[in-house]
């Protein structure tokens, strides 16, 4: 019962959220433990992102949206209209779904927050840039071109830059909204590794619809379904012995649909031969017998990727079209 000794960091009480009449979240009461990774899982449109947006009140930006109830962080109710929301937001870093570098240099992206909060000393800013780019695992790749525009970085690098930028204002909490869904598998893995390291110092809340990711990362799991809290608890218990039938169905359903794959990569937007190379790379990281799912939208790849994989001695289990443009290829190493 070690979990009982954990301190709660965020306490959510009777949270309700509305989008111009639509009741997006219903009576959610849950505690988020300190310095742990809490994963919020559930199907698309179940209110996961809305839930996260209530934490830092970015929900205020949407016309006609409102939240009621209490979200207490360090004794302050975030949803109380009279508090200084900028201070609350500073204490919660945000890692978005799609990397959102600001239109400025790498250096300026990292120092944006500190500068806004009044740090002007050049040496101190230099130190901040180095420190947080190192924590985000980006320093070695960009240290020689800190002044070049952030938009020149690859998507994966941009996401690590966003992580560094968020950490530079010294938050206590990191909110991640499906942080790897736009990334290639290697970059996604990179981000996951950083998050696992960061949980020693930060409370991390991650929204994901990728069950495997939740399993790899989470200490705690919150399952939302149609705006309602279905189940929450330590990850080991929720995944092995879900109390609720709906959670069981969700977890199993995801597995069945996935053919129980061990890894998946999304190669949409890639052309050959890159499709082929990425798939090979991803297979290389798996042990023998494991399954890899590859999603492609490049017509040639539909025939060429399976052919190439078989030539490499892997087994292609299925190739099926999942929608108008996308194909799903499952390969066993």
């Amino acid at each position: 019962m070690e979990n009982l000794s954990l301190k709660n960091h965020i306490s959510i009480q009777d949270l309700n959220a509305f989008y111009s009449g639509h009741h997006a979240l219903r009576d959610i009461t849950v505690e988020i433990p300190q310095k742990q990774i809490t994963a919020i899982i559930g199907p698309s449109g179940c209110g996961k992102s809305t839930f996260l947006k209530c934490f830092n009140r970015l929900i205020d930006l949407t016309d006609g949206a409102r939240a009621s109830g209490k979200i207490i962080v360090g004794g302050i109710d975030v949803l109380d209209g009279s508090i200084d929301i900028t201070d609350v937001r500073r204490r919660m870093g945000l890692l978005p779904q799609k990397p959102n570098p600001l239109p400025m240099s790498i250096y300026d992206n990292v120092t944006y927050g500190p500068r806004i909060h009044g740090i002007k000393d050049k040496k101190r800013l230099d130190g901040i840039v180095e420190k947080y780019l190192k924590i985000a695992g980006l320093w070695d790749e960009v240290k020689d071109r800190l002044k070049s525009p952030a938009s020149k970085l690859s998507i994966g690098q941009q996401q690590r830059l966003c992580l560094a930028r968020g950490l530079a204002v010294e938050p206590e909490i990191i909110l991640c909204d499906e942080p790897t869904s736009a990334l290639d598998p290697l970059s996604a893995q990179h981000i996951e590794q950083q998050l696992l390291k960061l949980k020693n110092d930060y409370t991390i809340v991650i929204v994901t619809h990728n069950i495997h990711q939740a399993m790899r990362l989470a200490d705690y799991v919150v399952h939302l379904y149609l705006g309602e809290l279905v189940e929450y608890g330590p990850a080991s218990e929720v995944f092995k012995n879900p109390k609720e039938e709906r959670t069981r169905a969700y977890i199993n359903g995801t597995f069945l649909a996935d053919l129980k794959t061990d890894a998946e990569i999304n190669l949409k937007g890639n052309v050959c031969p890159y499709n082929f190379m990425y798939a090979k790379q991803a297979l290389h990281d798996l042990s023998n017998g494991k399954l890899l799912k590859v999603v492609v939208d490049y017509p040639t790849a539909v025939t060429e990727v399976p052919r190439g994989m078989e030539a490499d001695g892997h087994k292609v289990l299925s190739v099926k079209q999942i929608n108008k443009t996308d194909w799903e290829i499952v390969i066993q190493k």
């Binding site: 959102n100 239109p103 930028r165």
Partner: peptide, 15 residues
């Protein structure tokens, strides 16, 4: 201007 730009700045505690 994409809303992500605003989100990025606001989430860092900017007014």
């Amino acid at each position: 201007v994409p809303s992500e730009i605003r989100d990025a700045s606001l989430s860092l505690g900017a007014t």
